[in-house]
Write a protein that binds this DNA or RNA. Structure first.
Length: 631
RNA sequence: GGGCCCGUAGCCCAGCACGGAUAGGGCGUCAGCCUCCGAAGCUGAAGUGCGAAAGCUCAGAGACCGUGGGUUCGAAUCCCACCGGGCCCGCCA
């Protein structure tokens, strides 16, 4: 997009004019000034030069500026250069040319980043145990992961979105225990989602019973052993139940706008024997060691050179611990071991395209997964230690492999005191961590329901003539927008203390604000007699600060997205979208479009509305925030 | 005991990667703006001066950036220590 081109020119000018002034080896750093009264881009290079040469920064700035002014004459988008006595070089943009070019690029559909040779990237996210419905903590994972998938694709990478299903763990076994040993019905009551039923009723009930009746725990280990076998009555039954719960979870994921390319099953990973091969290699190189005495007697362990501690990977009974399942999964993603899987269609009705599943039956379906150049795992921060162990082991399998394995960690979502109280838990501090066992959580479906209810009221108020179906569809979009944006905009390193009341806000820095802004822009375009078109002459009439601000902002999407990709930080897109929406609303309130008497100027403004709304829609798409023409 | 993360207005958050020009938003509070392209929005913080008006000009709420040191011409940003909060360090997943 054009702002980046402008930036490139400025960098070039700074570098050339430094050289021409006899200042060598200075990085031509360019940044946005704190205030646009200084200009549209600035460089602090004179300060650095002055530091080395002992001159005054302001004098250096004048010297370099005199050269820069000459170089700028050849440039396309640099309007003027001026030195600042504090030691800055300030560059202003050639607004008419910049706006005319930006608008026509965007109007022709060019919303993308500079296409580089895309990498093959595997992004793992969601990974919810198939025994319960998604709660808002899982939603944070999903939103982060799915937005990363979208951003990476926008940047031109070839992305595989992976969802890991732990279909053989204790949590699944608990559901089976409930059905088979506590006599709980394996059908949900009328009107209750299957995953909600299993999580809210079955899982909670089974855990209560464990506390009362410890012998029930033996049933759990019995079920686990049966599942492990992979065949037989219990294994088959579990497979069917897992599938029902998973499908129910997937409907929620899809509702949130997240889709996947492949499901990886833990049971298949275990049966694939990948671990056994890796284990042999690790034994051969002496990285895993057998302990014949001490507290880890009878176990295979890997040492941690830094802490001097060791991590058990194979228990004394020969079974593997959790991290030893993550290692082959990571190795498979990066193509560090042979691919034991076939691939088959799991769902062809997924909104974003076919969802595949691994299989050990050998069917390939003509598709390929794994073998990625980069693997990103969206996993909460509590697993950072284990993820570091996985990375270290990868390095032992293949020199430097850990550089291609990235853990996108994030803090958990907890509940505010008020919200905990609203669902029947009186707590000590200001917030409480969610707990599936205790039943202390807010389900995604519940939250979307509340958001939608409120959105319906708000939407109906503004659209008295519309059908119920129409209002429903809009309210659904508003609900999803509100939740996704809320979970995405905050830094992943910060805990979200979720408060129901606050999350129900549709004003200010929220998803619905973006939807509203887009609809506002569409309204202008729908009502107009004019045509969105602009040329150099009419662009020159766009002279107000609000118009220029909007034009600049809209052509920075690619810059924000690059940052988001580089730092695995999709909240950059949230900042961008909000800034763009603010710029649009200020423009909207500040200058007339359809009421503008000068038809040339009106059309130029229309073109600006058209282009900026396209960019807004694209940035919303990158966050998985739905877009509606009217709300 | 070892390690990771967080601490910025009454509340919630940006900014920290790459040190630089008046620390940005949102909520809330208060005051305005719908006969004027959608008020899920915008403007302002009793205002001053110029002007017929659009508007311009000046002024202008809320922050010891957890605390204390250090590095630097310059620190919210880098380094160290401490305080407060959260998390992890399992033959659970």
């Amino acid at each position: 997009m054009k702002f980046r081109e402008f930036e490139g020119e400025v960098e070039e000018i700074v570098a050339e004019s430094c050289r021409a002034s006899g200042y060598k080896d200075f990085e031509a750093d360019v940044s946005l000034p704190p205030n646009d009264e200084y200009g549209d881009l600035a460089s602090a290079v004179p300060i650095r030069v002055a530091k080395r040469s002992g001159q005054k920064p302001g004098d250096v700035a004048v010297t370099i500026a005199s050269k820069a002014i000459e170089f700028a004459k050849k440039s396309k988008y640099v309007g003027s250069v001026s030195p600042h006595r504090g030691g800055y070089l300030n560059f202003s943009i050639n607004a008419p040319r910049f706006i005319a070019d930006s608008v026509s690029d965007i109007a022709s559909g060019d919303l993308g980043a500079e296409r580089k040779a895309g990498e093959k990237i595997a992004i793992e996210h969601t990974n919810v145990n198939p025994n319960k419905a998604l709660h808002i903590g899982h939603a944070r994972n999903l939103v982060l992961g799915d937005s990363l998938v979208r951003v990476m694709r926008y940047l031109g990478h070839k992305v595989q979105a992976l969802n890991y299903v732990d279909d053989s763990g204790a949590q699944v076994a608990d559901i089976i225990v409930g059905f088979r040993f506590l006599g709980l019905p394996d059908e949900a009551p009328e009107g209750v989602k299957y995953d909600v039923y299993c999580g809210d009723s079955v899982y909670a009930k089974v855990n209560q019973e464990y506390a009362k009746n410890p012998s029930l725990k033996e049933k759990q280990s019995f079920v686990l052993k049966e599942i492990e076998k992979g065949s037989g009555e219990y294994a088959d039954y579990t497979r069917a139940i897992v599938r029902r719960i998973l499908d129910s979870q997937l409907s929620t994921c899809w509702r949130l706008g997240a889709t996947y390319d492949l499901l990886n099953w833990e049971s298949q990973l275990v049966h694939s024997k990948m671990w056994e091969k890796i284990f042999e290699t690790l034994k051969k190189i002496g990285y895993v060691k057998y302990q014949d005495l001490g507290e880890n007697k009878g176990c295979w362990v890997i040492p941690d050179a830094e802490t001097g501690e060791e991590k058990v990977v194979v228990r004394s009974d020969g079974t593997v611990v959790y991290v030893a399942k993550d290692i082959p999964y990571a190795a498979w993603k990066l193509g560090l071991s042979n691919d034991p899987f076939g691939y088959e269609v799991y769902a062809d009705d997924q909104p974003g395209g076919v969802l595949y599943s691994t299989t050990l039956e050998g069917k390939k379906s003509g598709v390929h997964f794994g073998n990625a150049e980069l693997a990103i795992s969206v996993i909460d921060t509590r697993q950072s230690y284990l993820q570091r162990i996985v990375a270290k082991v990868l390095d032992k399998l293949h020199e430097g492999a850990s550089r291609r394995y990235m853990h996108r960690s994030y803090e958990v979502v907890s509940l505010s005191k008020k919200t905990a109280s609203a669902i029947g838990f009186e707590i000590e501090g200001e917030f409480a961590h969610m707990s599936g066992r205790k039943g202390l959580y807010v389900n995604v479906d519940t939250m979307l329901g509340k958001l939608k209810e409120k959105a319906k009221v708000e939407t109906r108020k503004r659209n008295l003539a519309e059908s119920d179906e129409w209002v429903d569809a809009v309210a659904e979009a508003v609900a999803v927008a509100a939740l996704r944006y809320e979970l995405l905009k905050q830094d992943p390193d910060k805990m979200i203390v979720f408060d129901m009341e606050e999350a129900l806000r549709f004003q200010g820095d929220t998803g619905p604000y973006l939807l509203y802004t887009y609809a506002r822009a569409r309204r202008i375009l729908d009502k107009t007699e004019g045509k969105p078109r602009v040329n150099l002459a009419s662009a020159a009439k766009l002279t107000t600060k609000k118009e220029i601000q909007l034009a600049k902002k809209m052509s920075m999407l690619d810059i924000s997205a690059s940052t988001a990709g580089e730092y695995l930080s999709p909240k950059e897109i949230a900042r961008f979208s909000h800034d763009l929406a603010v710029a649009f609303n200020e423009f909207y309130e500040g200058v007339p479009v359809n009421k503008e008497p000068d038809p040339e100027l009106r059309d130029a403004r229309l073109a600006l509305v058209d282009a900026s709304s396209r960019v807004l829609a694209e940035s919303m798409r990158l966050m998985g925030v739905p877009v509606k023409d009217r709300i």
